[in-house]
Amino acid sequence: MNPNLRILSAIAAATLLESRRTHFPLLMGLLTLSGLGLSLFASTLAITESATIGAMTLGGFLRLAAILAMALFVLTSQAREQQDKGMAQLLSLESPRAIYLFGKMVGYLWIHLAIVTLLTGLMLLFAAPLPALGWGISLLCEMTLISTLALLCQLSFHNVPIGFATVSAFYLLARSVTALRLVAGGPIMPDSATSVMLMSSILDGLAFLLPDLERFTRSAWLIQERAIEMTAQLPDALGFVLVQTLLYTALLAAAALLDLYRKSV
C-alpha cells in the first residue's frame, strides 16, 4: 500500500476511534431517543395528519441534532489535537499535509455514514422507502459540508466558541438566505430605501457565496401522502444536493489546505 494512503487510513481510523472513545455514539443515541419522544409528542398533539407531523418533526429534529452534534465533535476533536500537539506531530511527517486533511475528512465521513445509516433506518419506519433514502443521502452531504466547514474554522481560529458560532451562523444563513431574499424583495419593502437596497444586495451576494441548504434534507420528503410526488422529484433534488456538496466541499477543503500549508510546526 502506498505509504501516504496508509497514513491517510490511519488518521481516518484514529478519528473514528476517537469518536467512540468520546462517547459520541451515546450522544447520538440519546439525541435520537429525544427526537423520537418529541415526534411522538407532536403527533399526539395533532388533530389530523398525526403520522406526517410525527415523521416531519422527527426528520427536522434529527437533521438539526446530527449537524450541530457533528460540528461540535469536529471542533472539539481538532481543538484537543491542537492542544496535545498531536496535529503538530502528524504535520511534521514526511507525507504531504493534504494527507492529514483528507485523512480527517475521510474519518469524519465514516462517522457521518454511521450516523446516517442509523437515522435513515429509523426514518424508513415512518416514511416511504425512496424519499427516506434520499433524505439520508442528502443528510450525509449536508453533514460532510458542515464538518468540513468546522474543520476549516478550527484550523483557522483555534477557538471552539468562535468556531461554533461561525458554523452556526453559516448554517442558519445558508438555510434561510433564499427566504430572506424573498422577504427583502417583497412588495412591502420600500424600493427607494437605501437600507433595504443595501440589505437586498448583501443578501444577493451572500446567496452567491453560500450553499443553498434550504434545498437539502427537506422534511417534506418524508410526507407519506406525497410519497409518489416526492419520489418523482428526488433525482433532480439529489442531483442539486450532490453537485452543490461536491463544489462547496472542494472550496472549503481548498481553503483549509491553504491554511494548513501555511502553518509553522
Partner: peptide, 21 residues
C-alpha cells in the same frame, strides 16, 4: 508553500460555486 494544485483548487471551486449559483 502551499502546492499549486491546492491554490488552483480554491480558485476553481470558488469560480464553480459562483457559476453554479
Amino acid at each position: 508553500v502551499a502546492p499549486l494544485w491546492s491554490r488552483l483548487l480554491l480558485i476553481g471551486a470558488l469560480a464553480m460555486q459562483l457559476l453554479w449559483h
